[in-house]
Design a protein around this nucleic acid. Structure first.
Length: 772
DNA sequence: GCAAGGTC
């Protein structure tokens, strides 16, 4: 802070307009002047603030989440531009997506006017990374701007003031961890998605020709949960069990069933023996009658995950739809920020006016009034806080909504009022009895005060009347029966179950659970049953089983465990970004290469659901194998790769753009084998031109020359250049190939006119009589 | 036409 004296104007940037507005309001005591930026959604709030004894002008504005996105450099963005394995090494760059350019312009304009920049993004990993995006943009136009980080636990006067008094530096380690995650997600996601999609569309053209078959580190484990539950149900073997049931009907109106303390037995004889003992002396002795208070707890303040789960369960509105509606209600000012992990109200949030707003409603108004008249709101506290947003609650009364908007708003209001209310109170009576040394039990419930249940119809609690029993008395049960039953399989997952599993295993964030679920639905990996449970589809089953059969835990939640652990180490500065990135790129690349090698297992797994795999031609087979590039085609700039005709014993270098681009290099028939060497020619351009390894026929080379050697066909080697037809652009010229083909001296030309299967002239592969 | 993470 050496140069603090020179600071006259400070640019502050929050993660979203909402936060900027809130922070500005606190810092300025509500006196901030609002003006427009280039982006309509991100306003600028201007005010004077006393920063460590200096009066400084503050400009508080915002981004909308990440300002920059990561993408492959242009040539790699095209699906057919390269073998997907190259995406593990292809260059990536950060750029500003179109819809954020206006935000960036505002930052640039304001930064030029300011001497200091204070980062006010959310105090989590993504926030730190967004902070550096802002810093990079501002420093690009004003290199000497002083940069500070404000750290706050919540947007409240105390927390904001404290942040201002103890400005720190941004933490590059935390930001680096996000960079690592972003880059891996992009490389792995794009590589596997292209590989799966391109291969399976060709192999199952009837069912998948227009289907995008994506892979992602969140969507696949989510799919895995659905498949795993389905398989558990399939593998379930019901077991027969036996139990003793005791019924007592002291009068016509009264009936009570006593349940066996042993619950159930799987051994028929054992149960029968106990049953017969009961039947020999079928008199019940009341051992104890215990009466005790029982309460049903009011709900906890609402966080995003609970909102999604409850809306799905109670209102049958999907998580995706719920969040869409919640966003809308939020932007119209009816509810608080809907993406929160907090389930405890901050002490400084005054709940009384929020309850008061609701007293005007015809349905729940009297209940809200009741809260105010009986001690005011007293919510329970949960144990989670994201230190930025309070639990979801209504912020404005309305009765003008329709449909699901109305239902969701009503739910949020009722949930809020229930939180502010009291637990339901009741009295439970537990009666324990003994018949021939076997113990049975029954319970009754009397509800004394429904309290929160009056406003919260989503929870059920019923009275259960049982007759009055006195300890140490006996009675004759109306019936003692030995029952037989069967264990039942687990049920398919509901959306609420799925969200719970994702949360438990750290798949996605509270803001993204709904999206990942939506993705696996839209990809046709899973479907919903009539009662809204998740059923894996053929594609989903095949994919999970295919990768499982390769031995990879692609659909298991713990594949990323090591990565998550490393990300933590990066954020703590204990491991370095580049080495962690290198390690995991290499690890996933190895998995990818093996997956391609074992791709037939994927086909096999899917063919048991999608029917027979398409028989493909030799050329298609080669395309599926995705050979590695030897060099760029000089005509169309796509990769040139080696293609082999096994039956025909010849190989050639062909452009990936075939048939649109016919550039090719044919080798003389003295060449037995050609393969791509890892070495790269130091002279030929465009870089890189891979060297090729040749094997020659015995006797085809002058005596003393090695029959195997590595050479370059890029033009630098005179002998090999001849194969390109002595043309300067030879390697990639279509004329080179056609002139070779038409030359009677070229042995390759002759072979081209013979059949690829039987090597006889006069017909082609497709018309070959030997073809099955 | 690819991911996941922010957010209008």
């Amino acid at each position: 802070m050496r140069a603090r004296a020179q600071i006259k104007k400070v640019l502050c940037v929050a993660e979203k307009n909402d936060a900027a507005k809130g922070i500005a309001e606190i810092m300025s005591n509500g006196r901030a002047k609002r003006r427009e930026g280039f982006s309509v959604y991100n306003k600028i709030y201007e005010y004077e603030y006393d920063l460590l004894g200096q009066n400084v002008t503050f400009c508080m504005t915002s981004v909308s989440g990440h300002l920059l996105a990561l993408e492959f450099k242009a040539p790699f963005q095209k699906w057919h531009s390269c073998n997907p394995v190259l995406l593990f090494d292809a260059e990536v760059e950060k750029y500003c997506p179109e819809n954020f350019v206006q935000i960036k312009r505002t930052l640039e304009r304001e930064a030029r006017q300011c001497q200091a920049l204070v980062i006010w993004t959310d105090c989590d990993r993504e926030g730190e990374n967004i902070g550096y995006e802002i810093i990079d943009v501002c420093k690009a136009v004003k290199a000497n701007i002083q940069v500070f980080r404000a750290r706050f636990s919540e947007i409240t006067p105390n927390s904001i003031r404290r942040a201002c008094e103890s400005l720190t530096e941004p933490d590059i380690n935390v930001s680096d961890a996000v960079d690592v995650r972003q880059e891996l997600d992009l490389r792995i996601g794009a590589a596997f998605t292209r590989f799966q999609t391109l291969r399976l569309q060709k192999i199952f053209p009837d069912s998948l020709s227009n289907q995008l078959i994506s892979y992602g580190s969140c969507q696949f484990p989510t799919l895995g949960f659905v498949v795993e539950r389905f398989k558990a149900i399939q593998a379930f073997i019901p077991e027969t069990f036996f139990k003793i049931k005791v019924v007592h009907e002291p009068s016509e109106e009264e009936s009570v069933e006593f349940s066996w303390k042993r619950h159930r037995l799987f051994n028929h004889t054992a149960c029968l023996v106990l049953y017969q003992m009961c039947m020999e002396d079928p008199v019940a002795t009341v051992i104890s009658v215990i009466s005790k208070p029982k309460s049903k707890w009011r709900p906890l303040p609402l966080d995003t995950v609970e909102l999604e789960k409850l809306a799905s369960r109670k209102l049958k509105i999907s998580a995706k739809e719920t969040m869409k509606i919640a966003e809308k209600l939020y932007t119209r000012g009816f509810i608080s920020y809907p993406r929160t992990e907090t389930n405890m109200f901050p002490t400084n949030l005054n709940l009384v006016p929020l309850v008061e707003q609701q007293t005007q409603d015809n349905e729940w108004g009297p209940f809200a009034q009741g809260i105010l008249e009986s001690g005011g709101p007293t919510p329970r506290n949960g144990n989670k806080s994201d230190q930025a947003h309070p639990p979801i609650h209504p912020t404005k009364y309305t009765n003008s909504l329709q449909g699901n908007e109305k239902r969701l708003y009503e739910f949020i209001v009722r949930h809020f009022l229930a939180c502010c209310s009291k637990d339901a109170e009741g009295k439970e009576v537990i009666v324990d009895i003994d018949i021939a040394q076997e113990k049975f039990s029954a319970s009754g419930l009397t509800i004394i005060a429904r309290n929160y249940l009056e406003v919260y119809p989503y929870d059920k609690w019923y009275n259960k009347v049982i007759p009055l029993y006195m300890p140490n008395t006996t009675f004759q049960p109306t019936a003692i029966e030995m029952m037989e039953g069967q264990t039942s399989p687990p049920q398919l997952l509901t959306e609420a179950d799925l969200i719970s599993l994702m949360e438990k295993h750290g798949i996605g964030t509270d803001a993204t659970h709904a999206e990942h679920i939506e993705t696996i639905k839209s990809r046709m990996y899973v479907g919903l049953t009539a009662d809204q449970r998740f059923l894996p589809g053929e594609l989903g089953m095949g994919l999970v089983e295919g990768y499982n059969s390769m031995g990879y835990e692609m659909s298991k939640p713990d594949l990323r465990a090591e990565l998550e652990a490393d990300l933590k180490l990066v954020s703590e500065g204990r491991k370095d970004k580049a080495s962690v990135l290198r390690h995991h790129v290499a690890k996933y690349k190895a998995v990818f290469i093996e997956s391609v090698r074992k791709a037939k297992k994927l086909d096999e797994a899917l063919s048991s659901y999608l029917g027979q795999a398409q028989e493909y031609t030799e050329q298609e087979e080669q395309e599926l194998e995705m050979p590695l590039p030897v060099r760029k085609c000089l005509q169309c700039n796509l990769d040139m790769v080696l293609k082999k005709r096994k039956e025909a014993f010849y190989e050639f270098l062909s452009c990936m753009g075939y048939p649109a681009c016919k550039a090719a290099v044919w080798f003389p028939d003295t060449v037995l084998e050609v393969s791509r060497d890892d070495s790269i020619c130091p002279t030929c351009r465009p870089h890189p031109v891979h060297m090729l390894k040749f094997k020659f026929k015995r006797g085809s080379l002058p005596p003393g020359m090695d029959l195997e050697f590595v050479g370059c066909i890029g033009g630098c080697d005179e002998t090999l250049r001849e194969w390109n037809g002595n043309r300067k652009t030879g390697a990639s010229s279509s004329k080179a190939s056609s002139s070779k083909a038409s030359s009677s001296k070229a042995p390759t030309a002759k072979r081209q006119r013979t059949c690829g299967i039987c090597h006889e002239p006069g017909h082609t592969r497709t018309t070959c009589p030997q073809r099955q």
